[in-house]
Amino acid sequence: MTGLLVQDKNVVVPGEIIAEGMDYLPSYGTYRQQDKIRASQLGLLTVDGKVLKIIPLAGRYLPRRNDVVIGKIIDILISGWRLELNSPYTAVLNLKDASFDYIAKGADLSKYFNLEEYVITKIVNVTSQNMIDVSCKGPGLRKLRGGRVIRVSPCKVPRIIGKRGSMVSMIKRATGCQITVGQNGIVWINGEPDKEIIVVEAVNKIQQEAHIQGLTERIQKFLEAKTGMKIEIIEDHTEGGSDYRPEGGSDYRPEGAAEYHSEESP
């Protein structure tokens, strides 16, 4: 028997034979063993032409350059802050990357970012040993005030954002809440308390059902039932965010955010 043994978008488990023969190529999450290609991670199989790869269903966040993440300040250093990123590794926010303002030598750093506070940051550098530098200079990058923070599985982040931000902008329109989804799985929600709860429920529903087809429609129905509003699914460049950036919607976008979006538009 040769060829593909598992259908596209099916769940595969480590060690499972995905394909036999030399017609396919192993990519992320798969490996070749003589003439067989086997899975090395739990996830959904993606067949892209000849290339077989796996979209993980679980796992911790691994930092990548240019990811926008939400971090929690856990320590104040001599010239910067240490952030927790929902990852096995912590990040450092350096003084020079923290603010456009001039911060004098010996200033009390807790006045800028204090312990336990959450900050939207962008990863500027990751070393081979996964030491992370983040920056707070840039459009949309700032300290978070008010609202609530929830943590989700980082693998589900692309589902929560949706294609070109369709999912997150739909939830925003339905609830009127501000939502920022960090690539590391930390989500910030700010709005009316009862609406915030609807967002939390919707995000949890997305997390649980991320691997099942027709997710957007189910979330649309869920939101319609919860809010009593008619909600449309909109997918376009100007309204939504993208798979790789937080700052989903058009509301509360700071100065310069338009540029920030256009570079991502496909």
Binding site: P14, S40, Q41, A58, G59
Partner: peptide, 11 residues
């Protein structure tokens, strides 16, 4: 371990 999404060549 597989459920935690860790890379492993087999169970």
């Amino acid at each position: 371990l597989a459920d935690a999404g860790i890379l492993m060549k087999d169970l």
